[in-house]
Design a protein around this nucleic acid. Structure first.
Lengths: 140, 140
DNA sequence: CCGGGGTCTGGACGCTGTCTAACTCGCCAC
DNA sequence: GTGGCGAGTTAGACAGCGTCCAGACCCCGG
């Protein structure tokens, strides 16, 4: 993944445009996500932010990521409620999660189709829903 | 899910047949899994076992579930390496995991097809692989 | 200069799973 | 019956991830 030209000023603008008060921490976090365009876990984000801003607390990183997700700046990819990733790519796609390596790969929504999913107990699989296909490659 | 007629003696036999030393704890755990034929997490199993055998330790439950999985008495359903379920149903099927409720539903392998999965970096999606489709029903 | 609201911080907590050292128990030889 | 060995079990420490809270902090308006 190439590092996109995404400056801290770009980050500041992005936040402002979305009605988010652009604090130092938030700018660093937005920059971390958008300059590398990858799925990242909260602690990956924290590690990157800490290189510049060593005193950024865990709570701030989590709060900020939640805030970004609410404001639709990033997508929250839920492997499990206790295992979240954040994806700056907002285009229509799903995710492939490899359990053994922990890697997440994008799947273009146009390229995948799933037939035979049962209706969910209390809701439909509606448009815009995120589907994570979790696979476990055959053990050797 | 109806409670199957699966006695503790059945459990003892099952263990013996599979070369597992049938201790009290193991019998209780096997009974918990097989009498309700559901996907269960380790702590659900522990809660059930503790009703009868209050002094069963966490380590034993985890050890036993791993042992059963190795011996192919149950299937280990890996939502994430830190979030496992155990499934006494060994037939060929996949799983649907509802992130918001935590519920797991079976999907018969014959009824589902997934087109467009990319090849995995270091392995193919081979026969017998467990696929968990994780969905998030649309928020209200 | 002061007050206040939004933000940040560190730490406690809960949940899930792993590991280890010590204990217990069952079984076998004698 | 006695002794001892090893499999099984136990409690508790530990690690990873996320949440929550009380208090400190900063910056703006008045």
């Amino acid at each position: 993944m190439k590092k996109l030209p995404f400056s801290r000023n770009d980050a500041r603008e992005l936040l402002r445009r979305n009605g988010i008060n652009p604090t130092h921490q938030r700018i660093e976090i937005a920059h971390a996500l958008y300059s590398r365009c990858e799925h990242m876990s909260a602690d990956q984000v924290m590690a990157i932010v800490n290189e510049r801003h060593p005193e950024t607390s865990k709570a701030t990183v989590y709060n900020t990521l939640n805030l970004f997700a609410e404001k639709k700046l990033v997508r929250e990819v839920v492997i499990d409620p206790s295992k979240l990733f954040y994806d700056p790519n907002m285009s229509d796609h799903h995710h492939l999660f490899d359990v053994t390596t922990g890697q997440i790969t994008d799947i273009d929504a146009a390229n995948i189709s799933v037939a035979g999913l049962p209706a969910l107990p209390d809701g439909m699989i509606a448009e815009g829903v995120d589907i994570v296909v979790r696979v476990r490659p055959q053990a050797a």
